[in-house]
C-alpha cells in the first residue's frame, strides 16, 4: 500500500539526509535535496518496481537530482567563498581533534569533486553501499564504479591532507582497516 511505502520512506530519512549532507555539505541544502527526492519518488511511484530495493531507488533519484543540478559544472568547490571555508575549518586550522577531520573539512574536500564522483564517494564511503549496488543504482558497470571511485578517493585524499590541521598521516596497519 502507498501508506506503507510512505512509512518506509520516513524510515529511510536519516540515511537519505546523511547521503544528502555528504553531497551538499550543508544541512539546509541537504534537507532540500531530501525533500525533492521524496516528492519526486512519490510522484513517480509507478516507476518503482515492488520487491526491489526502495533504498536503491531513492538513492538513484537523489543522485539524479544532484548530478542534474551540477551538469556542465566540474565541481562546486571553487565557487564556495574562501572565507566561509576558513570559518568552517577554524581560523587557525586547528579545529581537528584526535587526528580526525571535521565534518567541515571533509565536506569541503568532497565539494571539490565532480558531481558524479561525489555521488560515488557518498554512497560507498558514507552510506556503506557495495560496489555492486552502487553500479545498479547508477546504471553503470562495476568496473566504472571502481575506476571512478578510486580516482575520486585519491583526489579527496590529496584535498584532505592539504588541510593544515589534518596532521601527519600515521602509518596504517593492515589490521586496523575500516570495514
Amino acid at each position: 500500500m502507498v501508506d506503507e511505502i510512505q512509512s518506509r520512506m520516513i524510515q529511510l530519512l536519516p540515511r537519505l539526509r546523511r547521503f544528502a549532507l555528504a553531497l551538499t555539505g550543508d544541512r539546509d541544502k541537504a534537507d532540500d535535496l531530501v525533500q525533492d527526492t521524496c516528492e519526486r519518488a512519490l510522484a513517480h511511484l509507478d516507476q518503482w518496481k515492488p520487491g526491489t530495493s526502495l533504498d536503491s531507488w531513492m538513492y538513484r533519484i537523489a543522485q539524479n537530482i544532484w548530478v542534474d543540478l551540477h551538469r556542465g559544472r566540474r565541481a562546486q568547490g571553487d565557487q564556495r567563498q574562501l572565507d566561509e571555508v576558513e570559518n568552517l575549518v577554524g581560523m587557525d586550522g586547528r579545529a581537528v581533534t584526535e587526528n580526525r577531520l571535521t565534518l567541515a573539512a571533509v565536506t569541503e574536500g568532497i565539494s571539490r569533486l565532480p558531481a558524479d564522483q561525489q555521488v560515488l564517494v557518498a554512497m560507498v564511503c558514507v552510506e556503506g553501499v557495495s560496489y555492486k549496488e552502487a553500479a545498479s543504482v547508477l546504471g553503470i558497470p562495476i568496473g566504472t564504479v571502481m575506476s571512478r571511485l578510486s580516482r575520486a578517493r585519491q583526489a579527496l585524499y590529496a584535498a584532505l591532507m592539504d588541510v593544515p590541521a589534518a596532521a601527519s598521516p600515521s602509518p596504517v596497519p593492515v589490521s586496523s582497516r575500516e570495514r
Binding site: 546523511r18 549532507l21 555528504a22 580526525r100 577531520l101 571535521t102 565534518l103 571533509v106 565536506t107 568532497i110 564517494v121 557518498a122 560507498v124 564511503c125 558514507v126 556503506g128 578510486s150 578517493r153 585519491q154 579527496l156 585524499y157 590529496a158 584532505l160 598521516p169 596504517v172 582497516r177 575500516e178
Partner: peptide
C-alpha cells in the same frame, strides 16, 4: 593503500 583506507575512515566518522 593509505588514501583508500583514510578516505573511508574519515567520511564514515565525519558523517
Amino acid at each position: 593503500m593509505e588514501p583508500f583506507i583514510r578516505t573511508r575512515a574519515e567520511l564514515a566518522s565525519a558523517f
